[in-house]
Design a protein around this nucleic acid. Structure first.
Lengths: 239, 239
DNA sequence: ACAGTATTTACACCATTTTTACATTCCACC
DNA sequence: GGTGGAATGTAAAAATGGTGTAAATACTGT
């Protein structure tokens, strides 16, 4: 069964939309604020998020950007604001569809079905728990453990790990990594990468002097290599 | 570069949309009828299809259903008809988005970007792999293996291999190879080529003294000869 | 002020690239 | 069919620059 997270502050609309979605056979969870919405997204791992832009705390663009740093779950934005600028901004931030209030139930459900249909194809990607060797990483909850022992990563370390993991198997150039983790301004400081990759190796590799997961491509960049094809983006939804 | 197929009968609108898409860096192909559109979709394998519902021959629902029988390419429907029923029908048939005319260019492009972004994520998983003999080369991931054993190539070695492979069967002059790999400044140092071709042979040929794949054209240059016609650019057909 | 973190600095080390030297093959010409 | 010179192949050194490690310093929020 599909789980849909509804981030919406108006009680009436929540009820209205929830009933419609339940009629589709979806399980519906609700959040009233964006911060709460992000938490729920991490906990529930829904197959779809419906987001109202008109929430009191924070804007939708920010919500989508932060969500996208660890999840590819489809986002359908619903808003009373219908200016072109609003739409473009949030779509480019990573949202998948935009529906202007007032909307018809039928169209909402059709768009929900379209998004769910497509996300089913690649939903192995969406699940944010990555396992390799004895290590488990929950990108959504920012939790890392090695051999059942929880491992503490700093903010930068985690961000770097997250970028490497979401591009598993591919070489990421120094430039690209620096832009993603530190921001465009520091795209020349290759030193940072050596230090933080060293940290990750120290904390996660079985033998930090013989790295297996975090490989160096000299003169190019670094790659995360899921060993033995054992990257299981496994997830149990306990229905 | 992304290819977009535009199925639309009105010349004005075609021109209008084509210019906008080209501004995004897309390559645009056009079809005036649905039957023509299906043919083009099969031939070009575009990354996105924009479909006008108001075409003279046949309806859009039919178009999408037939397309979906063999392709998962995203479809953005554009239509003057805006009844809820129209939208639901074509979305449920397999379309991914629905935009009502008249629409703003900005919103159209934002929705196009959203669809392309998601379809790219799907395709990134299976990158083209070149196979010859017991060797496999994944150019996108910079991975090379021989008989299931991963082979390490240096930056220059890989660059050279990449140029040779993408021109399989063709003779590449010393000059050309040097310009591609080392840059224009070193186009006279033929020694480099001998050394690095030797490296590739050492690492990839079954018998480096009797090269089969990396052949010398004396006085001219080198060629990569995919033996047994077995160059398989295996690639996903989702487009 | 303190602890945790990010950034800077310093240095030893190693892989790759480039240089250098010499053996081998090819091919035209005798 | 040899022979010599040019082109090519091999094998090592030398030079370059990237990389890993450790530690000191600056920063940040509490």
């Amino acid at each position: 069964m599909n789980t849909v997270l509804l981030v919406e502050d108006e009680k009436e609309i929540r009820r209205f939309v929830r009933l419609a979605l339940q009629g589709e056979g979806c399980q519906v969870s609700e959040a009233e604020t964006m911060t709460q919405g992000l938490q729920e997204a991490a906990n529930l791992k829904p197959q779809l998020i419906i987001l109202d832009l008109g929430l009191p705390d924070g804007n939708g663009v920010d919500f989508v950007q932060r969500l996208r740093s660890w999840s590819q779950v489809p986002v359908l934005v619903v808003s009373a604001r219908s200016t072109e600028y609003d739409k473009i901004l949030v779509l480019d931030a990573g949202a998948d569809d935009y529906l202007t209030k007032p909307f018809s139930v039928g169209e909402l459900l059709a768009r929900v079905r379209a998004l769910l249909r497509r996300s089913r194809a690649d939903n192995e990607l969406n699940t944010p728990v990555v396992k390799f060797g004895t290590i488990e990483v929950d990108l959504a909850r920012r939790l890392v453990s090695k051999a059942q022992q929880s491992v503490h990563l700093t903010a930068m370390e985690f961000k770097l790990l997250s970028v490497l993991l979401t591009n598993a198997g591919r070489v990421l150039t120094h430039r690209h990594l620096l832009r993603e983790v530190w921001g465009g301004a520091h795209s020349e400081h290759n030193h940072y990468l050596r230090i933080y990759v060293a940290h990750l190796r120290q904390k996660l590799e079985d033998d930090p002097t013989q790295p297996v997961y975090f490989q160096t491509e000299i003169g190019v960049g670094y790659r995360f290599q899921p060993q033995m094809g054992q990257v299981g983006f496994s997830q149990d939804m306990s229905a």
